[in-house]
């Protein structure tokens, strides 16, 4: 069984700050991490390797620094890691990203044969689109199951799994080859063993540029991206009101709150608060 895991390196969004003076996002000094959802894809890949003797490649498209994410990924005990890096890939939206990843996967296929399962995270913490998994599946012509929460069984040409949708969970049979995007519910990423960690620290990922994967520069990166970010801004902060009660008795605090609420016209919209404005209905 051949498996490819798509991972993305993202800034640790819990550390992103806003410089209120310049109204810029401060990215400097913000550490990069493997996108949290991708950690669960890596864990699943490690299990496939253990239980199904899978050959696992990890792949990412990104700048040279993304090497670090790939090395970390190898610590899950996986086989090889590939960085797709080229100036021609820069500035990609999801359509161009899926093109480049697709070409990368095809190149891996040349080396190890038909890819059975492609794993991705549900969404990336920075871009947060959740579109790359479905896009790659479409380009490959594979079946797709997004938002996988548990896997019941894996057979030669199908997987039975449960996935999350808005209205509930859904147990499905998915034909292999397939793309799965996974949610944090699926598993708990492991703490790598020391031998695997040491291997990952010494490991040098494979780096491919546009020629290596035979990518058409018109379809990759900025030129292959139909969408354009025309503007970014920091959302204006909502202005707070006053603290009306500080460490007073709960009764006083409650009374002050109800008195204060009366001042808002819109509370008439709330059934349960009409008593405040003397509406008997």
């Amino acid at each position: 069984m051949n498996v490819v895991v798509l991972i993305k390196q993202v800034p640790d969004t819990t550390n992103v700050r806003i410089d209120r003076k310049t109204n810029n996002l401060v990215r400097e000094g913000v550490p990069s991490v493997i996108n949290p959802d991708c950690m669960h894809a890596l864990e699943l890949a490690a299990q496939l390797k253990e239980k199904h003797n899978a050959t696992v490649y990890v792949i990412t498209m990104g700048p040279p620094q993304a090497i670090n994410a790939l090395k970390d990924a190898i610590s899950f005990g996986l086989d090889e890691a590939v960085l797709l890096s080229d100036r021609a890939f820069a500035g990609a939206d999801t359509l161009a990203t899926t093109y480049t990843l697709y070409k990368g996967i095809k190149k891996i296929e040349e080396k190890i044969g038909k890819i059975d399962i492609v794993l991705a995270g549900r969404q990336a913490a920075d871009g947060d689109t959740g579109q790359v998994g479905p896009g790659v599946a479409t380009r490959l012509g594979y079946s797709l199951a997004a938002y996988v929460t548990s896997i019941e069984k894996i057979e030669k040409d199908e997987i039975i799994l449960t996935r999350r949708l808005d209205r509930g969970y859904e147990k499905v049979r998915v034909k292999i080859p397939c793309v799965l995007t996974v949610t944090p519910e699926l598993n708990e990423p492991r703490y790598a063993s020391l031998p695997n960690l040491i291997r990952s620290l010494r490991y040098q990922p494979i780096v491919w540029n546009k020629d290596d994967i035979n990518a058409d520069p018109k379809k990759a990166g900025f030129f292959g991206s139909p969408t354009r970010v025309v503007n970014t801004n920091i959302p204006p902060a909502r202005k707070g009101g006053d603290i009306i009660s500080k460490n007073e008795s709960p009764e006083i605090a409650a009374q002050k709150l109800l008195d204060e609420l009366k001042k808002f016209e819109s509370i008439r919209l709330i059934e349960g608060l009409r008593v405040l404005v003397g509406d008997k209905k």
Binding site: T129, Q131, T138, Y147, T227
Partner: peptide, 23 residues
């Protein structure tokens, strides 16, 4: 942009090779 909607839109936009803005 429900879970279903995002999955579906991602597939459709790729097949049509057009841009898709999420969420």
């Amino acid at each position: 942009a429900t879970l279903e909607g995002r999955e579906l839109a991602g597939m459709v936009a790729t097949e049509l090779e057009t841009g898709l803005t999420a969420d």
